[in-house]
Amino acid sequence: MALSSPQLQKFLLSKIHCNYGYNKNARKEVVVKGGKGRCCSAIAIDVPSSLTSASGIRWGSIKLQGAREEMEDDVVIVQSDDLNGFSFAAVFDGHAGFSSVKFLREELYKECVAALQGPLLNGKDFKAIKNALLEAFESSDAKLLKWLETSEEGTESGSTATAIFLRNDVLFISHVGDSCVSLSRSGKAEVLTNSHRPYGNNKVSLQEIRRIREAGGWINNGRICGDISVSRAFGDARFKTKKIEMLEKGVEEGRWSEKFASRVQFNGDLVIASPDVSQVALGSDAEFIILASDGLWDYMNSSDAVNLVRSQLRQHGDVQMASEALAQMALNQHSQDNISIVIADLGQTDWQNLPLEQQNFVYELGQALATVSILSLGIWMSTLLSS
């Protein structure tokens, strides 16, 4: 295992005790203080925020407002007897208001389950599962756009969504936007999703930029039409059903000229809700999954996140406390965004009795360095006093 970054080593050495307000007996609420002192609670449907499923998977979740003026993230975890041993979890990251998230946290799960009833119960036909999830996401987006228009509630609102169906042997991911899923295999981080952003030189970003331009859009300062920095999302009607209105409004606001607008020809939606769908086999080396919004990943890489969670689980085995510690670490890294995290411990690792070579020795190194620092300080003070 590679050593962690200096920031993680500093965190481990500092032995910070965060004000979690954690109550193991509480249902549906976990409170963590951070950012400007605001508190937000994780949402769980029909289950407490720290859970153990029938398959032995243990769940933890947390969402923090951070330094933002509004909380536009949400977290959903669902366990049901109708899912053939699967559990569902999703992270939503809203923008231009909370309206789209409010709609999706209820409707997306329903659409996915309705579309997956046959394929998911069989669990062997990935093509059918992929098509079902594509249908569910696109159907949810169409319903959301209609709801936003008829309800007049945040018509410019939008949201990313990364959803998983998890069983202890297999994981299905359906992903739109810039949240991320990371898997720990024997302590090694595997990033399982790619961010949908209209900037950067990676393969996915270049594909998104090409798609947007072919649809008649343009990129300005890493934003579609100088506005939005994610290229796949739910809602965002101004880049889908109301593109002409968006163009006309830009002329009125002086963002571009009427001559420029007259040359624009739209051939498709600039922002889409078509998800990347993937299947991941989970063997005996799979330890836990981290699903989180970009409020974590923009300030912390996947290796450091996995190392921190491993250290936490090795210390106390509590996945909820590990979720809270990871969120606090993002705050310590000066995250300015909303932070939403779901961690699923697959229940295949005996954290208290890991063989020595499998221990997260980054934490052990931090402990050793802390001891050395204390001893060095003592020697320095003794020398000072004796002189």
Rank of each mutant, 00 (worst) to 15 (best):
Tyr109Gly: 08
Phe86Cys: 13
Glu214His: 08
Gly37Ala: 07
Asp318Met: 01
Ala189Lys: 11
Val372Lys: 12
Leu282Val: 07
Ser159Asp: 01
Asp227Leu: 15
Ser151Ala: 11
Gly154Gln: 03
Ser373Arg: 14
Phe288His: 06
Gly56Ser: 05
His17Met: 10
Ala136Trp: 11
Trp256Lys: 02
His196Gln: 00
Gln359Ile: 00
Asn307Ala: 09
Asp73Met: 01
Thr383Cys: 07
Asp227Pro: 04
Phe234Met: 07
Glu214Tyr: 03
Gly295Val: 09
Asp294Met: 11
Asp294His: 10
Asp318Gly: 00
Ser139Leu: 14
Ala44Trp: 10
Glu69Ala: 12
Asp298Val: 09
Ala163Gly: 03
Arg185Val: 08
Ala114Ile: 07
Ala44Leu: 09
Ala233Ser: 12
Asn84Tyr: 05
Glu111Phe: 12
Gln7Val: 14
Ser99Arg: 14
Gly97Met: 06
Asn19Glu: 13
Ile129Glu: 02
His175Tyr: 05
Leu375Pro: 03
Asn25Gly: 13
Ala136His: 05
Ala67Trp: 01
Leu356Trp: 00
Gly250Arg: 01
Leu384Lys: 10
Leu377Lys: 14
Glu153Ser: 13
Ser303Gly: 07
Phe11Gln: 15
Phe239Leu: 10
Gln117Cys: 10
Leu108Trp: 07
Gly94His: 01
Arg213Gln: 15
Val31Met: 09
Trp256Leu: 02
Gln358Met: 13
Glu106Tyr: 05
Asp141Lys: 04
Ser262Ile: 04
Ser14Val: 04
Pro198Lys: 00
Glu248Asn: 15
Gly123His: 05
Ser5Ala: 10
Glu208Tyr: 03
Lys36Glu: 06
Ile77Ala: 06
Phe239Lys: 12
Arg232Cys: 03
Glu208Arg: 00
Gly35Phe: 02
Ser262Phe: 05
Phe11Met: 11
